[in-house]
Design a protein around this nucleic acid. Structure first.
Length: 213
DNA sequence: CAGCTGATGTTCT
DNA sequence: GAACATCAGCTGA
């Protein structure tokens, strides 16, 4: 199997909720037009299971210009704008199956100073929410919508994932009134990591940040 | 720190 | 003109 096949397999291997969990501990990267690199460990994801999922953009097969990337092959980037913010998703199944994973939070590792400038914030507030991640990277448009997340300039590196001590699941955020599936446990997070959105201070692991070793 | 609320801009009706 | 996979700033404790 060549590298391209291996990369595609990562996203197609398993159900979308399994992929959402496998993405925890992998690295999200972005190289901006000035050549600056931004990286962070993915610490929170949500799975959206397509046509049957009442909380998903593709519920009942809804297919518009805006959500078209969800129908692309595994690894297709789906950027969605909401309330003036931009959110990053990746399609997880074969073309025509509109399932995907929303990246909700990262633990920054590279480009932190520029992220602080882009966000006008410091500390855990830098990237502890889906709109905050894109803003930290300086992405405020749909330019990379529909591109592949297996290659620069916006890509996921899953070659040496960091291992969570524990993966916690809960109901997804912000979809409370979106029907029967709203309460299903399709949100996944690295237990104890301080960059997880809405985590309480007393639940944070300040020694290992929720990672093994 | 938790909880509430107004601002926000794109998409679809 | 409504809906929305959000955020920051404010309040009260």
């Amino acid at each position: 199997m060549d590298i391209k096949s291996a990369e595609m397999a990562f996203f197609r291997e398993g159900t979308t909720d399994q992929i959402a969990q496998k993405l925890l501990g992998t690295t999200l990267n972005y190289r901006n037009p000035d050549g600056q690199l931004f990286s962070g460990l993915i610490v929170e994801t949500e799975a959206y299971l397509g046509e049957l999922d009442s909380a998903a953009h593709a519920f009942k097969g809804r297919h518009t210009a805006a959500n078209d990337p969800l129908y692309g092959p595994a690894g297709t980037i789906y950027i969605y704008s909401i309330y003036g913010h931009y959110l990053f998703d990746v399609a997880t199944q074969e073309a025509g199956v509109p399932q995907g994973v929303l990246i909700r939070a990262i633990q920054p590792t590279v480009g932190i100073e520029q992220m602080q400038i882009n966000r006008h914030q410091t500390g855990y507030n830098l990237t502890n929410g889906p709109g905050k991640v894109m803003a930290a990277f300086g992405i405020h448009d749909l330019n990379l919508n529909g591109r592949l997340a297996q290659q620069p300039p916006l890509w996921i590196d899953y070659s040496h994932p960091k291992q969570p001590q524990a993966i916690i699941s809960s109901a997804r955020i912000g979809v409370e009134n979106q029907g029967d599936w709203a309460s299903k446990p399709y949100r996944f997070l690295v237990g104890g990591n301080p960059y997880v959105s809405k985590i309480r201070k007393r639940e944070v692991d300040l020694i290992n940040l929720g990672w093994q070793d």
